[in-house]
Amino acid sequence: MNPTRLPIIPLGRDAASRLLPFVFGLMTFLAGLALAGVVALSGASEQIGKPEVDRLTVEVQPDQSGDTDARTQLVIAHLTRDPAVAEATAISDDEVAALLQPWLSRDTLPGDLAMPRLIDVRLKSGATPNLAALSEAFATLGPGIKIDDPRTWLDRLGSFGRSLAVVAGIIMALIAAALGVMAVVNTRMALAVHREVVELLHLMGAKDSFIARLFQMQALKVGLIGGALGAAIAAATLYGIGQAVHRLDATIFLDVALKAPGYAVLAALPVATGLIAALTSRVTVLRALKRMP
């Protein structure tokens, strides 16, 4: 007797089925990239969402009176009266020029350019200044006095990052749905191709679950193989991007290089791919068999 156990239904031998692992692989690859996006953006949002900022800046723009220094001193006086403020110091013109140097070289900076005066405000630890009251007080000193609180735009940036993470999550869900649809289409094709064998098994008394298991195990196998392929390529891609970003030291980019937990989730993607394929295949077969007498 031949010891080799042959598959009861020769699934996966037609041309369309042979391509399926690559389609699943591509989808898992895209899901891996979306996952990296979710992880990176969530991490960045979390980081941004908890700013430990103990400084703010007040900008005093020159006005027609030309006495910017006097207005600056009045602003400092208002600031130091706020109990949250530890220290308020006017930044010198030289320091302002140094800040502008990366954009406008010192040589091209015209000497009579009216530059705003900046006040560096250091806050007491954990204290929050009454910005509304300060803004109101500054308004009495004339136009062009602005408080630049980094926490405001950091909050907005954090919110934007969280929104992007949600979008990346939705993309992952869509990829999962597309994967399920592919599994359904492929299972229906396989049911049509192997209709006679399925009917024969049904007439021999095979339970629906027995027949469904044949399809679902094949779908699981294809999902795992395709998923492993896609996840491996995604891991290599993300590692490569991470290394490139690291070499650039470009902190402006989000750190898309996955850390160990991210790689663990990436490693779970083939399992998820396999399970989605197996489950949808099973449901498709069971629904088709219900139409048989």
Binding site: N2, R5, L6, P7, I8, L201, M204, A206, F210
Partner: peptide, 14 residues
């Protein structure tokens, strides 16, 4: 696609 043995064994597997 099955051998004679596998064909005959099918109802037993079911």
């Amino acid at each position: 696609h099955l051998t004679v043995v596998e064909n005959v064994a099918l109802p037993l597997r079911i």
